[in-house]
Design a protein around this nucleic acid. Structure first.
Length: 209
DNA sequence: TTCAGGATGTACT
DNA sequence: GTACATCCTGAAC
C-alpha cells in the first residue's frame, strides 16, 4: 500500500510543509525498478520572498532557479561545490519561489541498493559508521538515492521519485521535533539566523549546537 | 576527537 | 574571477 502525498500538500505554506515533511517517506525507484525508501529526518525551508539564502531571493530567476517558481509538487535538484547534488521539494503557488531542502533521511528499505549507490559495496560489508552516515546530509542522501540533475523538476507524485505518507506497510509516526538555525549559509546576513531547520528526534542526534 | 584543505561545475559580477 | 544550501581525507591533538 502506497499513499502518495496529495498535490495540495505542496501548495501550503513552506514552513508548515517543512515541518510536516518530517517522518514522511522519500521513495526513489531506480532504473532497475528497485525502490529505495528513506524516512525524512531533517529539512530546511527556503522562502524566496524574504530569504537571502534562497537561490531565488528577490525574484532572481535564472535557468537554474526556474523550478522554484513553478507550483509546488515538483523537485528542485542542483549541483553544489561542483560535485554534490541537493534535493529540494518545491512548495507554494506558481510564481512564489520557495522550497524545502531535504537534509537527511533514514533508509528504511532498499538498503542494499542504497549501499551500492553510496559506497559501491554491499550493505553487509559496511562499517557501523558507514551505515550511520549513509544519508545524514543533503549530498549524501542524493548519492544513496541516486538523485541527480536528471530528476530536476520531477513530479513528486510520479513513478521514479515520490513522497508518501505510507509505503509498504510503514506509516508515518509522530516524533518530537527540534528547531534550529540553518547552517552553511553565513553569507545570508540576517536570514542566516532564521529558525528554519527542522529535525525529527527519533534516533539519538549527535548534534552539537 | 577536531580541524584544515582540496575537489569541482555552475551562476553571477 | 569568486562564491557556493558539501563531503572526504589525513594530520594533529
Amino acid at each position: 500500500m502506497v499513499k502518495k502525498l496529495a498535490r495540495e500538500f505542496y501548495l501550503q505554506d513552506t514552513l508548515t510543509a517543512a515541518k510536516e515533511l518530517l517522518g514522511h517517506f522519500l521513495v526513489r525507484v531506480d532504473a532497475q525498478g528497485e525502490a529505495i525508501c528513506g524516512m525524512i529526518t531533517e529539512t530546511e525551508a527556503y522562502i524566496g520572498a524574504t530569504d537571502k539564502a534562497c537561490h531565488a531571493y528577490g525574484g532572481r530567476r535564472t535557468p537554474r532557479t526556474e523550478p522554484l517558481f513553478a507550483a509546488g509538487g515538483i523537485s528542485y535538484v542542483y549541483l553544489i561545490y561542483g560535485m554534490y547534488h541537493c534535493f529540494n521539494v518545491v512548495t507554494e503557488a506558481e510564481n512564489v519561489p520557495s522550497a524545502v531542502l531535504v537534509r537527511g533521511v533514514a533508509i528504511v528499505s532498499g538498503q542494499e541498493a542504497a549501499a551500492q549507490n553510496r559506497y559501491g559495496r554491499s550493505f553487509a560489508a559496511l562499517t557501523p559508521k558507514q551505515r550511520r552516515d549513509m544519508s545524514n546530509g543533503p549530498g549524501k542522501l542524493c548519492r544513496a538515492l541516486a538523485i541527480d540533475k536528471s530528476l530536476n523538476r520531477a513530479d513528486l507524485r510520479g513513478e521514479e521519485l515520490f513522497i508518501a505518507e505510507e509505503f509498504e506497510g510503514r506509516k508515518r509516526t509522530a516524533a518530537p521535533m527540534i528547531t534550529s538555525k540553518r547552517i552553511g549559509i553565513d553569507y545570508a546576513e540576517e536570514a542566516k539566523d532564521f529558525p528554519w531547520r527542522f529535525q525529527q528526534a527519533t534516533e539519538p542526534l549527535k548534534e552539537r549546537m
